[in-house]
C-alpha cells in the first residue's frame, strides 16, 4: 500500500511540468524528391499539433495530406520528439526568450492509406526557427529530414520549406 502511494506521488510530481505546457497548431509544406519509394508525385500539406512538456522539449503529432492532384488521396501520419539546441523555448517571464533557435527532432511516420508501403523512423533538423511561445508564432524554415523506409530498406530525404506554429 505504501509502495503504491509512493509510486503515485512520484508519478504526480513527474507529471507536474505538464501544467506549464504550451500547445501549438502547425501548418506547412512537405516535399521530397520526385523519384522516391514513399509517395507518388504530388503536392502535400502538413498539419499537426505540438506541445512543449519541458523548457527545451516538445512532442509533435502531424498529418501529411496530398493537396493536388487529388486531395487526401495519399496520407501519412507521424510523431516526433524535438529538442531546442540553442536555448530554452519558453523561459520564465522575467527572462527574455531567444528569438532564434535550432531544433533537432526524432520521430516515426508512415503511410496511413497504404500501411505496408512506407513507414519508419526519421531525424529532422530545423536550422532556422524564429519566434516561439512568447511571440505566439514560430516559423521553422528549411527543415530537412532523413527517413528510413523499413519495408524498402532505403533512405529518403524530405523537407518542409516553411512550418508555421501558432501557439494557443
Amino acid at each position: 500500500m505504501r509502495k503504491r502511494c509512493l509510486i503515485g506521488l512520484i508519478l504526480l510530481f513527474s507529471l507536474s511540468p505538464l501544467g506549464a505546457t504550451k500547445v501549438a497548431l502547425s501548418i506547412g509544406t512537405w516535399n521530397l524528391p520526385a523519384k522516391n519509394d514513399v509517395v507518388a508525385e504530388a503536392t502535400f500539406v502538413q498539419t499537426g499539433f505540438l506541445f512543449s512538456f519541458a523548457r527545451r522539449w516538445e512532442v509533435e503529432a502531424f498529418l501529411i495530406s496530398e493537396a493536388t492532384p487529388q486531395v487526401g488521396h495519399q496520407l501519412l501520419v507521424g510523431s516526433a520528439i524535438t529538442l531546442a539546441l540553442l536555448g530554452v523555448t519558453d523561459p520564465p517571464p522575467e527572462i527574455v526568450p531567444s528569438y532564434l533557435n535550432l531544433y533537432l527532432s526524432l520521430g516515426f511516420m508512415g503511410r496511413l492509406d497504404s500501411l505496408d508501403s512506407a513507414y519508419g523512423p526519421f531525424i529532422r533538423l530545423s536550422p532556422l526557427a524564429v519566434g516561439g511561445p512568447r511571440f505566439k508564432l514560430r516559423e521553422r524554415s528549411l527543415n530537412f529530414s532523413l527517413f528510413y523506409n523499413i519495408p524498402h530498406n532505403s533512405f529518403t530525404i524530405f523537407w518542409n520549406i516553411f512550418l508555421l506554429d501558432f501557439f494557443i
Binding site: T29, P69, I161
Partner: peptide
C-alpha cells in the same frame, strides 16, 4: 510561394 497545379501543361509536383 508554392503551388500545386492540375493541368495538362503542368506536372503534379510542387
Amino acid at each position: 510561394s508554392f503551388d500545386g497545379l492540375v493541368s495538362n501543361s503542368y506536372s503534379p509536383g510542387e
